[in-house]
Design a protein around this nucleic acid. Structure first.
Lengths: 96, 96
DNA sequence: TTCATATATCGAATATTCTCGATATACGGT
DNA sequence: ACCGTATATCGAGAATATTCGATATATGAA
């Protein structure tokens, strides 16, 4: 668990928004055809209005911090929160 | 409580270090003459090795985020954690 | 293989943050 | 008033982050 990478990832509002959206995929990504149990398809984040390359970059930062986990399925990449990492980070914040 | 300012403030390792030091002033600043109940004198942070202007700048960022509170006493400025703000921030992190 | 779609990476411009010396301001003591 | 100490602010350079168009890579379908 890289505390520094996590806090830097969280220091951008859009990345926090993405994490919050991923808490309730069915609620925030009703357009997604494939089951939300797989995670949220990268393309779904187009809803935030940023160009595709920016979305991909933000997802990469969240992934590098370990906050989300990508899973490649066919031509898509599905992202899920890593609740274990997030929980450990919260515990660490208690020491601040 | 400005979540954005807080996370940006916490995204720098030295500022997190300072916050942790402020949790136990007597333990981390044994050199301070005046009572630790007043808080920690700005000059005490020279122990981190950064030049005075950098220390002052970091303290200003933490203050602007509301994480610490300055109190001017004579020619000195004493800093204390604002535990209420920090607690509210932790609660907010639970929603991430 | 060729085409269309999904995602990642590159590269350059811009913006933000960090650092640190120099200087300014504020206060107390003499 | 002057001097010394404590802290803040300024300003410029360096480092890092963000943005976004263009391009590359990967996959599936025809």
């Amino acid at each position: 668990m890289n505390e520094d990478a996590i806090l830097k990832a969280l220091s951008h509002p859009m990345r926090r928004q993405m994490l919050v959206w991923l808490r309730a995929p069915a609620q925030h990504f009703p357009d997604q055809r494939l089951p939300h149990e797989l995670g949220v398809c990268a393309g779904q984040f187009a809803r935030c209005g940023l160009p595709q390359s920016s979305v991909s970059s933000h997802l990469a930062v969240l992934t590098a911090a370990g906050l989300i986990v990508p899973e490649k399925i066919g031509q898509w990449v599905f992202y899920k929160r890593d609740e274990a990492v997030i929980a450990r980070f919260r515990d660490r914040m208690a020491e601040l």
